[in-house]
Design a protein around this nucleic acid. Sequence first.
DNA 1: ACCACAACCTGGCCGC
DNA 2: TGCGGCCAGGTTGTGG
Length: 270
Amino acid sequence: MPEMPEVETIRRDLCAPLLGRTIERVTFLWPRTAANMPSEEMAARLQGRKVVALRRRGKYLIIDLDPACHLIIHLRMTGRLHLYPGRTPAQKHTRVITELDNGAELHFWDQRKFGRFYCVEDENEVVGKLGPEPLADDWTVEAFKEALNKRRAPIKSLLLNQQIVAGIGNIYADEALFFAGIHPLRPGNSLNDDEVWHLHQAIRYVLREALKAQGSTFSTYRRPGEETGAYQLQHQVFRRTGKPCPVCRTPIERIKVGGRSTHFCPRCQV
DNA sequence: ACCACAACCTGGCCGC
DNA sequence: TGCGGCCAGGTTGTGG
């Protein structure tokens, strides 16, 4: 579920409560959450380390620890991080409990069990292949054009490819294509310079606005204090099948692109 | 290298 | 009420 604006919102919420805290104990209730080593080993490695920074790369949350290593978390479809001020019992879908030195607990809640924790010394083992950050200065229109110009796959599928640009998921792909007026099935290499420019602008616009609204909540996304996001109230097309296009009133259509639900205005997006 | 698709999981919803 | 089928915001592995 969580895309870049959701993960960034979670990162910002967790900074104050986690920075400077020492991990006293980690308990994996669903051991396969530990992705790159046995869960007992990961728990032992994390114990006693102090949180020195929280960063984000694409949809990954990176927790820098001292002595030096990184705990990297991907929430996948339904993962949430809940922060509690004191000892708190596990809920039905709690998969990992992290106890901190001030008595607080960070719970990883994940209904569908797809979320993953990585513990690494070199973060590039996990995030090394990601494409550029969409809101960073180094993600230029030229770089985007270069990434698209030999690809025949539908532009919607290319936007979901984290090696082209990191952090876009199904919601913001559909929303950005709507603002750019581009049909989701258009082959990547069929976009002209003007269209690539508009799409680049649209991606940045949508992600910034979603960030301001602290993400989109449809079902399971929650912030660490369990607040919802608000950007779903501003969606133009996503999950609005049959409702009028906000620009031309034509009913929004839903199709499958690369196996993913895709929402668009058949009149505005060509 | 690129692309399509199944697999990983649980639960909600819809129709019968 | 119960059951089958479909749906879900992500990523990876497999095979063409």
